Simulated assay, not measured.
Amino acid sequence: MQIGETMNVLVMGSGAVGSYYGAILAKSGHTVNFVVRGDHFRAIKAQGLTVESQDAKAYTIKVNISHKPDPTIPFDLILFTVKAYDTHDAVKSMLGSISDNTSILTLQNGFESGQEIQSLIQKGTVLEGPAYTVCTIRSPGVVQQIGNVNSLLLGPVDPKDLDKAGTLTKQLSDSGWPIELTNFPQRELWSKLVFLGPLAGLTSIVPLTAGEIRANAHTLKTIEDMMGEYAAVGNVCGANLASDVVGQSIKTLHRYPANGSTSMAKDWNSGKKTEIEALLGSVIRKAKDHRIDMPITSSIYGLLTSTARINK
């Protein structure tokens, strides 16, 4: 694939984030195939996919949709945005769509998905990075990007694929994505996790918005201390985080939409399966491996998992 060429793209996991970034690629002229289910599928089939954003005029486009990947089509790019707990099954379902030239870009939460995907495929190149954005499915078929936080970073799981990552980054940037290349995607994933993990845990255990958390001295101190716990684990895992990563995360919290929450909190309150293991459990397990204490995070994780067991 050369810069400027039209890509054949598969969006694997067309929730809010996948639908939003996939729609941008479709609008710029790429052939995009969305794997989507339920009411979202039916609405897109009937009316097209509508994207709303405060930075641009709303638009609606007709897109290709299906319930599962077409194994007869080798894709140039697979945008992998399924929930972390569905990674294994989703990868297995799309193996027929991966060629030697396929790039698989995971924008999933947590720090483990890139390695997991790489362990499950025999072809293609795995790329990873964080998406800093707040997206929601406002109604079936309508995706809304909220607030002024909207950026992505992309890098290779295997450093030898840096040139390919650079080519794809340029292609995506030219297509309208707010994206930059990073040589150290794990550092960037951990930097996001320092922010998102504590926010996801806290908004799930108490019914507070980001604005309410930062307006109260106690909850602001609690989330700041949790961020410090995450940063300590990330550094011992080799993330080499910036010395002010907690301070930067607090600044991100202050830029976050005042009425914003997290997808984990929304899933938790709806009784759905959550990404608690990707956002909290995986970090706690790494902390135990390195004999690092995470008292606040461990308490929240314990309360959430105990409540989940009781409610089953």
Results as ranks from 00 to 15, higher is better:
residue 224 E to N: 10
residue 67 H to P: 00
residue 272 K to Q: 14
residue 115 Q to R: 15
residue 222 T to N: 14
residue 297 T to G: 14
residue 171 Q to A: 05
residue 144 Q to L: 04
residue 278 A to R: 02
residue 210 A to Q: 08
residue 235 N to V: 09
residue 213 I to G: 08
residue 13 G to V: 00
residue 161 D to T: 00
residue 208 L to Q: 05
residue 161 D to G: 05
residue 128 E to V: 11
residue 87 T to A: 10
residue 114 G to H: 12
residue 127 L to T: 12
residue 119 S to M: 08
residue 278 A to F: 00
residue 179 I to R: 01
residue 100 D to M: 13
residue 291 R to D: 13
residue 9 V to D: 09
residue 275 E to V: 03
residue 58 A to K: 15
residue 205 I to R: 05
residue 294 M to W: 07
residue 167 T to I: 15
residue 239 A to D: 07
residue 235 N to T: 03
residue 200 A to C: 11
residue 17 V to P: 00
residue 243 S to A: 15
residue 208 L to T: 07
residue 6 T to K: 15
residue 17 V to T: 13
residue 168 L to R: 00
residue 122 Q to D: 12
residue 24 I to P: 04
residue 44 I to G: 13
residue 175 S to I: 06
residue 20 Y to E: 01
residue 310 I to Q: 05
residue 299 S to K: 06
residue 213 I to C: 01
residue 26 A to C: 09
residue 304 L to A: 12
residue 246 V to P: 09
residue 218 H to G: 07
residue 131 A to N: 05
residue 281 G to A: 03
residue 231 A to W: 10
residue 24 I to K: 04
residue 204 S to D: 10
residue 240 N to A: 08
residue 97 S to Q: 11
residue 71 P to D: 15
residue 138 R to E: 15
residue 170 K to F: 06
residue 305 T to M: 08
residue 118 Q to W: 04
residue 255 R to Q: 13
residue 9 V to F: 04
residue 58 A to V: 02
residue 52 E to F: 08
residue 201 G to A: 08
residue 279 L to Y: 01
residue 145 Q to N: 09
residue 62 K to T: 15
residue 94 M to S: 05
residue 281 G to M: 10
residue 267 D to K: 02
residue 13 G to S: 07
residue 77 L to W: 06
residue 28 S to I: 00
residue 194 V to G: 04
residue 209 T to W: 14
residue 243 S to M: 07
residue 254 H to E: 08
residue 189 L to D: 03
residue 241 L to V: 10
residue 181 L to H: 01
residue 81 T to E: 11
residue 103 S to R: 10
residue 180 E to W: 05
residue 299 S to A: 13
residue 146 I to Q: 02
residue 139 S to M: 06
residue 272 K to A: 10
residue 256 Y to I: 11
residue 174 D to Y: 02
